[in-house]
Computed example of a mutant assay.
Amino acid sequence: MSFVKVYSKEDILPLLKKRAGETKFGEEIGFVKTVKDLKNHPAKYVLLGIPEDIGVRANHGNQGTSKAWKASLGSILNIQHNPLTDAQNMLILGEIDCETQMKQAESISKEENHYVEKLGELVSQIDHKVCEVIKTIVEAKKFPIIIGGGHNNSYGIIKGVSQALQNPINCINFDAHTDFRSLEHRHSGNGFSYAFEEGFLGNYFIFGLHRNYTSKAVFNSIEEHSKRIKFNLFETISIRKELSFFDALQEAEKCCSNENFGIELDLDAIECMGSSAISPSGFSLNEARNFVAYFSKNSNASYLHICEGSPEAEIFPNQVGKAIAYLVSDVISEKYNL
């Protein structure tokens, strides 16, 4: 499949930091030669990167999310392989080939007429690639873990999973924003609204929505579709403390987990995390880990998407990669007692 750059063991060796007496995660992780080989590999989890930031720029945001994949891959490969982090249950597929679109995006001047609309056309091209690759992974009965890029990629992921399962898929989004904006050109702020409009997204729950960054129009849209779109506010959970974090998890679970659902985690929602829209107020990384660990153990969970990370948007760039590595390990660590 030309839409994905398939990795081999040799591709990741430069990222490994071996140490005597230890076995690193990357030394035991699996690989396939082609996408078609996925169905014959015993691993449950498939790691996939999306190195792009066109969707963020098309939404008037800051570039940098294209670098989250490589930053996190280095961290993931160098965690310890032990009975609690079983690398043999995961394989690295590789990355969505965004090189052509990224080069074309660089050639578009911000001074040009319809600048963001032209970027949106490139986002649509990436949507197609993401959809086809995710569809193949899910048809192979695997659980994709997708890292990198903007939240625009939620659309291609949801569409691909939905087509593979031949049903709409529900979604729980750990996010400060709804990304349910108007159906204009494609960008990082309307992936869920497009998936909803086209029938790929069933129920949708926004976990920890920030009141300060949600427009009246978006609240009206949520109200219009209140039977299928629900949310809880970050302020209700963490500021006024009218809803415990665990009860907030159960609200989202009740809304979406009775059928196949996706787990979306936007790093913008984590306080002072390097992201495309870094925020001084948000959940802690440990709360994000709790969220991922809680929902990934549900038998109806179908994928995890970690997006909007921007390693250069903070004082310590390596922390974004390490944060994502913790989140990934929380998905695969199914054993808690040796």
Rank of each mutant, 00 (worst) to 15 (best):
F3D: 14
D11A: 12
T23L: 13
G30T: 10
V35F: 05
H41T: 06
A43M: 10
L47N: 05
G49I: 09
D53P: 04
G55N: 04
K67R: 07
W69R: 03
W69E: 10
L77Q: 07
L93D: 05
E99F: 12
Q104Y: 08
S109N: 10
K129S: 11
I134S: 04
I134W: 07
F143P: 01
G148F: 13
G150N: 07
H151K: 05
N152C: 11
S154P: 03
Y155S: 00
C171A: 12
I172S: 01
N173D: 08
N173C: 06
H177E: 02
F196M: 02
G202D: 15
F205H: 03
F207L: 02
S215V: 03
N220C: 00
K227L: 10
K230L: 03
L233A: 09
E235L: 08
I237D: 02
S238Y: 05
K241E: 15
L243Y: 05
L249D: 01
A252P: 00
K254T: 08
N258L: 00
E259P: 00
E259T: 03
A269W: 01
S275M: 10
A277C: 09
P280D: 07
S281L: 14
F291H: 07
F291K: 04
S296Q: 04
K297P: 04
Y303L: 06
L304Q: 04
F316V: 13
Q319E: 14
Q319M: 12
V320N: 10
L327K: 08
S329M: 14
I332C: 07
